[in-house]
Nucleic acid binder design. Sequence first.
RNA 1: GGGCCGCUAGCUCAAUUGGCAGAGCAAGAGACUCUUAAUCUCUAGGUUCCAGGUUCGAGUCCUGGGCGGCUCACCA
Length: 493
Amino acid sequence: MSETGRSTGIHIPGWAERVADSLGVGPHVVVSGISVSGNIHAGNLREVLVAEAVANALRQRGEEVRFIFHADTIDPLRKIAPGIPQSYEEFIGHSLSHIPDPEGCHVSYAEHFLVPFEEALLEMGMDVEVLRSHDLYERGVYTEVTRGAIEHTERLREILQEVTHRKMPEHWSPYLPRASSGKLSGMRVLEHLPEQTSVVFADEDGFEEAADYSKGEGKLGWRVELAARWKALGVTFEPFGKDHTSRGGSTDTADRMSSEVFNYPVPGRYEYEWIGLKGRGDMSSSRGIVLLPKDLLEIMPPDAVRRIILGRDPARRFDIDLEGGFPRFMEEYRAEAGEPYIPFTHLVTVAQTFGEDQDAAAQMLCRGGYGEVARDTDKLARDLHYARNWAAEWAPESMRLGLLDQASSEEAAAGLDEEQRAYLREVSGKLRAEMDGEAVQELLYSTAIERGLKPKKAFAAVYRVLLGKSSGPKAGPFIAGLTLDQARERLSV
RNA sequence: GGGCCGCUAGCUCAAUUGGCAGAGCAAGAGACUCUUAAUCUCUAGGUUCCAGGUUCGAGUCCUGGGCGGCUCACCA
């Protein structure tokens, strides 16, 4: 198999191949456009990944493909998102690219939310061009389509009214000039001066101002802009969330504007469904349920992110399970790669037992029979990192481990019966530093049998004083991983 | 009302271009002198929502219907 892409072994899902097949010959421009009015979450990532998969399918077919992530940075702020200071009300109607970062760490509100997402795309090795709409306007990329739109104001208005069955205001204009106050909305366009690429308009107080649309001093209204963008960038494919594609929705109007006004063929389309987050509900910025791409990259490699976000079919809704079902997902992902791997649940135990001490973790893995896999230290470091983060953030209580401190351990010991305490004391006395996991396991088991103590009860005692729980990871290797002092202190009850 | 999606084993879901309906978990039986979301072996489990149609052959394609989920005028 020879791959055309830069990364080897790109897997093209069947749905992406079918979409690509329907697109005809290139060159192709694949676009994913997303608002930066708030956190760009894993649901938004689904759109980008749909576009990426189609772009890859086209590339594999030998097409020339430009893959664009279009950030709507010039869009006006519409409402105060949770976590944003109330004082930002004064910026409602202003471009996101012209509003200060609420946390002061980036050059604008737009960048504050865009940059982390952009970094995640980079980390995923995505071959994508990130464009900012305010920059496109300023560079004049939209000058021609803006002129065309203003010239066809009446036709555009008719389309909007026909499709949405809504009456557009008397002085409606496809172009929203920015007033000196910074506001985009509420202006009345009075005159178009095509040779100066500008419009004269009345601002909110009735004063006359002018805006040069070749310099980003305003923008097209959303529905018009969508169609205009197709033309300006030569878009041949764009995925849409289902909220855009219903009757009377933005794609309905844009389709007609594109073919009837801009004289541009409607790009190919794929309608994708939303993803939920199991255990936490649907993703929603306003309810504070936000899963960021970076959160995913903390617990799994980029290709696993692609797999979990796209699902089997992006046209289908499903809930991401990062809790109880996640280990299974990781196993399937690893198994599919065809390489030997360490079961994720085991990694989780090892990672929690040894923290940052990778050598100790590697030793434990060797004893467990995973020496071969553990030899690749870079890969192991990443895997342990993923497992540790997952355990801390998502793992069910039953899989979380933490060695009790001495005081809590004594407290736990007080709850055991005399039989169990005597057992622990005996084990403690027989523990030796040189014992490996198997030897400790044998010691734990045989001591229990000799004393006539049921293994289940014996092991429960061990877990109680070590972890404060009645069960845990395989006890022998776990204890062997501790220092002799740590183990003895807690077993001497 | 419009649109999209779904309906397959108790549950979660698979099933290339139409070609003997499968897997994981759960359940039942057995094994292991040893805790784990244990492991291993075996077993059982089905009118693929319904009714028609096309076909040698339909979970898959066509028509009609039912039920459920989501979405709908700037929230992916």
